[in-house]
């Protein structure tokens, strides 16, 4: 699969780590400063994990990697995450 998906697909994997639904969380891109819900991010399959890119500038927001039964999330491109109604 070479085409990207979007942040909706991260709802399950991110529920491993976060209590709230993270597809509705708002994140700020460290590269361009865009502030958007995570559902709109571009998600590239990078088995065994995903590379998540900013929908505005394309820079990497985060990566998720499965190492056996452990999930490692690298948040290098996200300078803020906000959850709540």
């Amino acid at each position: 699969m070479t085409e990207h998906l979007d942040g909706n697909v991260l709802a399950g994997p991110l529920s491993e780590l976060f209590r709230d639904d993270m597809t509705t969380a708002i994140g700020r891109c460290a590269h361009c400063g865009d502030v958007s819900v995570l559902a709109t991010a571009l998600v590239y399959d990078a088995a065994p994990g995903w590379c998540v890119r900013c929908h505005a500038c394309g820079d990497v927001l985060m990566t998720l990697v499965w190492a056996g039964d452990r999930l490692r999330i690298d948040l290098r491109g996200v300078t803020a995450l906000e959850v709540g109604d």
């Binding site: 942040g7 909706n8 709802a11 399950g12 529920s15 639904d21 597809t23 509705t24 819900v37 559902a39």
Partner: peptide, 9 residues
Amino acid sequence: VRGPLGGWF
């Protein structure tokens, strides 16, 4: 199965 998932769409 795991869910229901996603609160945006």
